[in-house]
Design a protein around this nucleic acid. Sequence first.
DNA 1: TATTGTTATACTCTATAACTATA
DNA 2: TATAGTTATAGAGTATAACAATA
Lengths: 148, 148
Amino acid sequence: MTPAEPDQDATTDPGRLVDALVQTSFAVQQVLADAAAEHDLSLAQLRLLGILRDRTAAMSELARHLGLDRSSITGLVSRAERRGLVRRTPSPDDGRGVLVELTAEARSLGVALERDVGRGVVALAAGLGATERDRLTALLELVVERTY
Amino acid sequence: MTPAEPDQDATTDPGRLVDALVQTSFAVQQVLADAAAEHDLSLAQLRLLGILRDRTAAMSELARHLGLDRSSITGLVSRAERRGLVRRTPSPDDGRGVLVELTAEARSLGVALERDVGRGVVALAAGLGATERDRLTALLELVVERTY
DNA sequence: TATTGTTATACTCTATAACTATA
DNA sequence: TATAGTTATAGAGTATAACAATA
C-alpha cells in the first residue's frame, strides 16, 4: 500500500462518489424505463425518439449517436417505423443514404414522455431543497460537460 | 399558464436538473457497460454479480432486487452458472427454494470490475475539484437515500 | 390455495459477416 | 476502394402463460 499523498484528492473516500453515481444512474434509468413502458416503448426506442426530437438523422448518424452498429439501427428504426413513430426518406444528397424523421404521433408521444420523465426525476430529487437542487444541477453539468 | 408562485421551488428551471441527471445516468451506465464488456459480461450479469457480492439470495429475491420476473431470473442465473460465475443450491429451509451464490472466479472478477468501474466513474468527475466532489457525493446520497 | 422455480414461447435488442448499391 | 444500408443469423434479455413441486 502506498502512503497517502498530501494531494487535494485525498479528502473523502472516492468510493462513496462512485457508489452514489452508480446508484443514482440506476434510479434515473428506472424512471426512464418506467416512463417508456407506460407508453409501450423500450428504452432503446425512447433514446431514438430523443435523438430525433431535435434533428433529422441518417442511419449512420443514429448509429454513432447511440453507439450501436448500423445493422442494429436498421431493426430499431424498422420497428419504430412499423409503429408509426418514424419515417424513412431517401437522402437527397447521397443516393445510398436514408434519412429518418419523427412522425407527428411520435412528437405528441414525446411531449407526454418528457412530462412523465420530468415528474419521475423531480420525485427522485424530492429530498432536496431548492438551493441543493441548484447546486446539484451545477455540479452534474460539470460532470456531463465533456460528454457528447 | 399559471403564474409563478412565490415558492421555494421556483429558483431554477427544473428541466436543467432533469437533463443533467438523465445525461449523467447515461454516462455512468456507459462506464458500467464498458467495464462489463471488457470482461465479456452484460450489464445484467454485472448487476447480478453486484447483488450477490454481499449475500446469497433465492431466485425470488433476485427477481425482486433486479425488478425482473422470476422466469427471467432463471435464464440469467443459468447463463451465469454455465459460465462458472454462480452456483445453485437447494434451500435448506424451503423445499421449493433455490439459493444462488458467487463462485470464487466471480469474486475475483468482481474485484477487477469494481476497479474498472471506479476508474471510469472517477474519470467522469475529473472536472471537479475535491470540494466539489464531496458536495456532489453528499447531494447524490440524499437523492439515493430513499432508493432501495 | 398460495408460492417457488422452471419451461415454452415470443419479441426486442444487439453484434458479426456477407451482400447490394452508390460514391 | 470505401461507404451506406440491409439481410441473415445467432445470442442475450425480458415477459406472459402454463406447469410441477412444495408449503
